[in-house]
């Protein structure tokens, strides 16, 4: 374990060093990414100002959902860069994955260490700013439970998005190319999680409750934090299922990943 971690950090350090080779242009890129991504929220805020609220939620309240999802997704996208299915498919086709299999180190760890996209800091910063805007615009009755639940939620969302990436990467063992359809759940999932989910049609809500249980990671927990009414009439405990869902999803995705590798070894690239 110790050895694995130190190896992982060694691999990551190499990535980071090469990405920081030109610090000025790196900072520029991070900031411009943050700005570009942040504009989506700005566009929403401007639009919302014409209407007042969305599904009974104010701008500040939506900003909390939005910032949380962006921040967590950005974190995940950085940490799980190696599992980004856009990059993983080519890795398999080019035979690089075979080379990883020839090394006496845990394969998951090697994939984690194979890529670390530091410029995702842009999204992380953007998410953080939106979250802070949310904090300042909304009146949360902060209890200890609510305060502590925020970092837990972030961790849960990171695991949740991470498991989607792992699922996605694993499918490329079969497809050998990126499947755009996965974006519906990853990027689409994070977009859905940025809104109070009762505004979506039933079919979409069911999809994001039972197939990809995103609703348990943002909307229901935020109902607890903001003490909002639940128009879907869900029992209170649904606000606290996030850790359970996130860990199960992650565990499942790792199982699927293992299964994918097994299958890969029997079909070849």
């Amino acid at each position: 374990m110790r050895r694995n971690l130190s190896l992982l950090f060694r691999l990551l350090r190499i990535q980071i060093r090469s990405q920081l080779q030109y610090p000025a242009s790196f900072v520029m890129e991070v900031l411009s990414q943050a700005m570009i991504l942040g504009f989506f929220f700005a566009a929403f805020a401007l639009t919302l100002s014409q209407f007042g609220d969305i599904g009974g939620w104010t701008l500040g309240e939506v900003a909390l959902l939005w910032g949380l999802a962006e921040f967590s997704f950005g974190m995940m996208d950085m940490v799980f860069s190696g599992f980004d299915y856009d990059a993983f498919g080519p890795l398999v086709i080019k035979g690089t994955f075979d080379q990883l299999l020839l090394r006496p180190v845990n394969i998951t760890l090697q994939v984690l260490g194979s890529r670390f996209v530091l410029r995702r800091l842009g999204k992380i910063i953007e998410g953080l700013i939106i979250f802070i805007i949310g904090l300042s615009l909304s009146n949360v009755d902060w209890t200890l439970g609510r305060i502590l639940y925020i970092p837990v939620l972030i961790l849960c969302q990171v695991l949740f998005f991470g498991s989607l990436f792992i699922f996605g990467a694993t499918t490329t063992f079969w497809t050998k190319e990126r499947l755009e359809i996965l974006n519906v759940f990853t990027y689409g999932g994070s977009e859905i999680m940025s809104y109070p989910m009762h505004i979506f049609p039933r079919a979409i809500r069911l999809l994001f409750s039972f197939v990809v249980p995103a609703i348990f990671l943002s909307y229901f927990p935020m109902i607890y934090i903001l003490d909002k009414p639940n128009p879907l009439n869900m029992p209170v405990f649904t606000s606290f299922l996030a850790p359970f869902i996130a860990i199960s999803m992650f565990w499942l995705s790792l199982k699927f990943w293992r299964f994918g590798i097994k299958n890969y070894q029997s079909t070849g690239s």
């Binding site: 969305i54 599904g55 519906v184 689409g188 979506f200 049609p201 979409i204």
Partner: peptide, 13 residues
């Protein structure tokens, strides 16, 4: 799917 998402948001607005 993204079209559905955006449409739903607009309807809610």
């Amino acid at each position: 799917m993204f079209g559905f998402f955006r449409a739903a948001v607009l309807i809610a607005l």
